[in-house]
Design a protein around this nucleic acid. Structure first.
Lengths: 110, 110
DNA sequence: TGAGATACCTCGTCTGTCAAGGTATCTGTC
DNA sequence: GACAGATACCTTGACAGACGAGGTATCTCA
């Protein structure tokens, strides 16, 4: 992974929720998408991913169900709850704030 | 602090080095500046700050010296080394990459 | 004399990430 | 039928960074 995980830390949940905004999906698929979309520059490690799922589900931001395993291994699908949609938009705003904050603080000249 | 620390995690060292790019300064002053520049929205907790200093110094990215305490408590000044300047620019590029990556991944529609 | 600001430091805890390991199912090949 | 490889899920333990809580020492001003 080209991007250090410490720089992404704290944004994993938001990345997952932002994806679930577009529709239900399952863990393995999320990671495949991330690798594809970033040309291999970024992926969420499996252990990280599943611990995020557990965290999000215990906060009632997502719910899960065993979906149709169309000729393959069983899949646990995740769904963004109404509460999760609210939380997601909160975290998206937080990202915008963080971005402008860091842009300002990382200037090396005035 | 309005901005969650987990969103900044991993950028603390870069924030400090970016500040030291402008000239030597000391811990307490860095924090005052951060609070002022962000209107109180952000600060680095003292314990975090000093552990970052230790980390950066042991990597030879910064050096320190007891500076002139102009009518006040003693001050330990920090200086960005040549190695630190290189590392800082590396981390500034990493921030740009991270920013565009997250901007892409956090889109909730295509 | 004492409060408050300045300025530094340490210890222990918590949380998120990840390496390493595991299980089970399906597909295709020999 | 046996096996490799892909798909897909899960758990455990360790590590590193951030921070709360506590401490020390100096100076200023009332």
């Amino acid at each position: 992974m080209a991007i250090s995980s410490d720089l992404i830390r704290g944004h994993i949940d938001t990345i997952i929720m932002a994806r679930l905004m577009k529709g239900d999906t399952y863990g393995y698929e999320i990671n495949k998408e991330l690798r594809t979309r970033t040309n291999g520059a970024f992926e969420i490690k499996e252990a990280t991913l599943y611990s995020a799922f557990r965290r999000l589900e215990s906060s009632d931001y997502i719910s899960s169900y065993w979906g149709p395993n169309e000729g393959g291994a069983r899949r646990r699908y995740y769904h963004l709850t109404d509460l999760g949609r609210i939380e997601c938009s909160v975290q998206l705003s937080a990202w915008c704030e963080t971005r402008s904050l860091l842009d300002r603080l990382l200037q090396t000249e005035d």
